[in-house]
Design a protein around this nucleic acid. Sequence first.
DNA 1: GATGAATGAGCTTTCATTCAT
DNA 2: AATGAATGAAAGCTCATTCAT
Lengths: 198, 198, 198, 198
Amino acid sequence: MRKRPRQARSKQMVADLIDATARCIVANGLDGTTTPRIAELAGVSVGSLYQYFEDKEALIDALVADRAAAIARGLRQLPVDTAGNLRDMVSGAIGYGFALLRAGDGLYVELIKNWHRMPTDKVADVLQQHFLELARVWFLRHYREYPIENLQVRIFIIVNSTLFTMVRLIADDHPLIPQKEVAEGLTDMIVQYLAVPS
Amino acid sequence: MRKRPRQARSKQMVADLIDATARCIVANGLDGTTTPRIAELAGVSVGSLYQYFEDKEALIDALVADRAAAIARGLRQLPVDTAGNLRDMVSGAIGYGFALLRAGDGLYVELIKNWHRMPTDKVADVLQQHFLELARVWFLRHYREYPIENLQVRIFIIVNSTLFTMVRLIADDHPLIPQKEVAEGLTDMIVQYLAVPS
Amino acid sequence: MRKRPRQARSKQMVADLIDATARCIVANGLDGTTTPRIAELAGVSVGSLYQYFEDKEALIDALVADRAAAIARGLRQLPVDTAGNLRDMVSGAIGYGFALLRAGDGLYVELIKNWHRMPTDKVADVLQQHFLELARVWFLRHYREYPIENLQVRIFIIVNSTLFTMVRLIADDHPLIPQKEVAEGLTDMIVQYLAVPS
Amino acid sequence: MRKRPRQARSKQMVADLIDATARCIVANGLDGTTTPRIAELAGVSVGSLYQYFEDKEALIDALVADRAAAIARGLRQLPVDTAGNLRDMVSGAIGYGFALLRAGDGLYVELIKNWHRMPTDKVADVLQQHFLELARVWFLRHYREYPIENLQVRIFIIVNSTLFTMVRLIADDHPLIPQKEVAEGLTDMIVQYLAVPS
DNA sequence: GATGAATGAGCTTTCATTCAT
DNA sequence: AATGAATGAAAGCTCATTCAT
């Protein structure tokens, strides 16, 4: 960001631009997202866009950071019963994940599809961190001597496996497999993988 | 293809163009792959490119089809001991997968990163078909009444999970986790997932 | 038009582009009229051209519409004595037509030559409408029971005959026949054709 | 023509190329007529095309010359009763003209539409010459002292008027006026114009 | 600060023509 | 003579970015 928006108006402008970027991606896809279109959707001039953001990439960066934070907030506020059953936790997380991806008119799906063109894969990082923490707490309660350092690898594998399997399913216009079965399959796989100490 | 390559020279040209496309993708990424650059790398004029391929997309299609066929051939020629141990089979497949992705200077990684812009996701399909067949044969030998229809879902999950976890790891310039650990983790996860009948 | 010209500068730009298009057609013919050439003649970049016009066709459309309107205006302001002699009216119209076609350095001739590639044949339509109206008024005054519905066919024949005969004459670099004789011939033909009720 | 085709095979090739050009224009319009397409339709290579014709223009020239000759032949073989009634002669000629234009799948219409891009307007010349001759004979029989030099102007006007009025009507996909009425109108106009000595 | 007109490099694609075979 | 692969200039058009107002 070129300039810290100290005044309310500036903050509003930044927020508007990020929001317009999201709407533009939803409407036109990432490839169809152009700076003139974003500016138009935000109701400001292209010039203003460049007043607040170094370039187009910075704007998308900001959008991703924004959504990553929002997701992190959402995850933190999710009531998690760390005393409960592992399968229920995993199943719940996967259900929440599908719901999240289906929401936002495909914004998240489009962003994850294009993760390699994104600033940093902040969303995946956020999810990785969150579930790592969650798993840590849960295992601390249930298996006192669970090898924690191993957990990081497992979470990396689980988060990426789940995320991209979900996206691949959703992105398929005529999927041969129903979402419910994939959700159950993923749940089975994850629970078994986590439950068996290496 | 616009013109069927009848003569030896034509066949060479088609092969050169596909090869140049591969090198261009490796060198410039899919977004940086332009018709002038491909033509230059192939050492021919842009016009020649369009003598053999309807458009840029057709050229990339041809590359993908070519590599998909090569991978399918490679997989078929892989010595597979269907009488053997499941874990060894899975571990071997994952090792082979990592080797394949590391080879070709990142061409496959770049193609899989951009799966949603590819002709059809031929590579993923090839892998899915192959492993589905493999698993079918193996389970027929070892668990006579394994629920086969469920296998399709499992293979979908496994192929996508593995593929994208691998790509995400390789695409990360400074991965915190060594490939060996991810390979072992994936193997664990898959073996357990496959071994337990639902 | 992509962008409505709100500011004076924009209006000037649109006018300049249309003017440059006219000059380009005059200088290079319709086939030699390209977007780079138009932009160069207008003294702006190609990009600017596309800020104001959807595509090349839209620009040519605008030029034709502009000139059609100008011609319509010119025709309306022509002092017409509907009480007067038919031959004088026709003769005057033909003289005016020749003068118009000779003016503009051949722009009109080039446009009419290419009528079938024009937006709609706006120029011919304009002329047809105008002369239809004129003829209607004149005949209403002079022959109370002239078969009006027949008039439409006659005007169609007359306008096209006259227009293309004139253009063919003017387009001929070394015509064997002087314009004056063709003008008189056309006048004779039209007057006789109109005067005799079917 | 680069080279006089002395041998039968060469003559055949030239004829084939001209025929292919005609078919190409009919199928793709003049703008869609490219040398590769012509060669393909003729069943020869582009190289051969350039062996017999200087360039694309020369080929189209040849086609026009060929058809002009054919039309001239057709006209000469038409039984004309120079002793007969003028209106019948004109009416017959116009009917013949419409039939000719409607025939050939639109080749003649396409050529006349693009007369200004044609070698020379050979077709119009042919028609002009023919009708001039015809008129001369007829008038010699009926009006001994008809001013012949005036006839040239009249024929010029009549041929162009008729030709382009017809083409404009045929080229209109949804003409408001039926062909029959235009044919009658043209006949009326021409007969009156010719009948009245200046 | 805000604007939006203006830019221009660069992309994809076409096609008349040539020339080695 | 015949072939057809190869050429490359040139077209239409896009869009991230700048800068005068």
